[in-house]
Computed example of a mutant assay.
Amino acid sequence: MDLKQAVVLVTGGNRGIGKALVAQAQARGVRKVYAAARDPRTVTAPGVEAVALDVTDPESVRRAAERTGDVTVLVNNAGIYVGASYVTGDLVDIRREFETNFYGPLNVTRAFVPQLLANGGGRIVNVHSALSWVALGGSYSATKAALWSASDALRLELAPRGIGVTGLHVGYVDTDMAASVDAPKISPDAVAVQVFDAIEQDRDEVLADDTSRGAKRSLTAEPGERYARVAA
Rank of each mutant, 00 (worst) to 15 (best):
R155C: 04
T211D: 06
A142N: 11
A221N: 05
E49Y: 00
R41P: 00
A37H: 01
S212M: 07
Q201D: 11
A215K: 08
R213V: 12
Y81G: 06
E225R: 12
G167N: 14
Q115A: 10
A198M: 10
Y81F: 15
F102I: 01
N76D: 04
E97K: 12
P223F: 04
G29P: 11
V191W: 01
A159P: 08
F102A: 02
L131I: 13
A228V: 06
P58C: 05
E225T: 14
Q194C: 12
V108P: 09
V173M: 06
G16W: 03
A208S: 03
S187A: 12
A215E: 06
L91M: 12
L74Q: 02
F102G: 01
A190M: 01
R15S: 15
D57I: 07
V134M: 14
S149F: 07
P105T: 09
V87S: 07
R41F: 00
V48F: 05
L74R: 06
L207A: 08
G214L: 13
A232M: 06
L9G: 03
A52L: 08
R217N: 04
Y140T: 11
V230F: 14
W133Y: 15
A179P: 07
V173G: 05
L117F: 06
A35Q: 04
Q115D: 05
R226F: 05
P58W: 02
A27M: 10
T175V: 11
A25W: 08
T166V: 11
N77D: 07
V30Q: 08
L3Y: 08
S187N: 05
I94E: 12
A20S: 15
T175F: 02
G162A: 09
A23V: 06
D54A: 10
G214E: 10
L53C: 02
A231P: 00
A178V: 12
N107L: 04
S60E: 09
Q201A: 15
N119C: 07
N101A: 07
T166M: 09
I80P: 00
L154V: 06
G138I: 13
L154S: 03
L117S: 06
N126S: 10
T220W: 00
K4N: 13
T42C: 00
D57R: 10
Q194N: 10
R41Y: 00
I17S: 01
R213N: 00
G83L: 12
V87I: 14
Q24R: 13
S85K: 11
G83M: 10
L91Q: 08
I124D: 06
L3C: 10
A192F: 05
R123E: 13
E66S: 11
G214R: 13
Y81P: 02
A159S: 15
S129Y: 05
L116Q: 10
L9N: 03
Q5L: 10
N107E: 06
R63W: 00
P40H: 02
G171D: 09
Y34C: 05
